[in-house]
Nucleic acid binder design. Structure first.
Lengths: 112, 112
DNA sequence: TTCCTTTATCGTAATATTGCAATATAGTTT
DNA sequence: AAACTATATTGCAATATTACGATAAAGGAA
């Protein structure tokens, strides 16, 4: 009897892993929180906010941009960063789905 | 004029980074989704579900356990894993807060 | 006891991440 | 043009992650 090989991970699993991974560092959480607070700001402001070198901050910004969590608009000399709401929405919905399902189970168990 | 050194990251930022990081790999997303689906299961079931070696799955389970996302109960020979709802709840609330704040901003901008 | 099953851990290799200083790039100002 | 500002990239070291096979540990079955 042949046991079917399990499928590799789904595109969805990869997608949410990528989004979550971008949140997986305190510096990037701090950047996201700051951007939410100020709505929009230039890169230099973020560098001033964090206890990290400019090059390191730039790397974290790149990671967030590649995950689709932030967007950067070039404005002359500077770059104006802001949150990409769509990705946050997506991750939020995923977390909600996951969290609500465990809630359902908990209720079901209690009603037994 | 002395510019104050920015504070290191907050405990909250570390906490959510740790939780998010645990979600930051498709295998771990798959494990979480499977555990939600079946509610509870022994470790071997998870190994069968994933295209990964037993030792690798064990590592991922350890990571999830250390992040507080799953719990493992020893039952004789086997270990019964399940989701720790509290941590999911926490991460969900965080994402909701973050996501709703960008929503607010969007509305505020539109009303200008 | 001996064998089997289940899970964790160890050792190791490959790769990725994090952080920084130094440098490059590109726009701005003078 | 030269000097300055803002950001990205490069090079590099330290560390972490991912994956696997081999092995250990601990319980159950024969």
């Amino acid at each position: 009897m042949i046991i079917p090989k399990p499928r590799p991970f789904t595109a969805e699993q990869h997608e949410f892993a990528k989004l979550a991974k971008a949140f997986g560092h305190p510096a990037r959480i701090a950047i996201i929180e700051y951007l939410i607070e100020v709505n929009t700001c230039i890169c230099g402001d973020i560098v001033d906010q964090l206890p990290l070198a400019q090059s390191t901050v730039s790397q974290h910004l790149k990671a967030l941009k590649e995950a689709g969590i932030i967007k950067g608009n070039i404005e002359g000399n500077t770059i104006c960063y802001c949150i990409d709401e769509k990705s946050l929405e997506k991750l939020n919905k995923f977390m909600q789905r996951v969290s609500s399902k465990t809630e359902d189970k908990k209720i079901a168990v209690n009603q037994k």
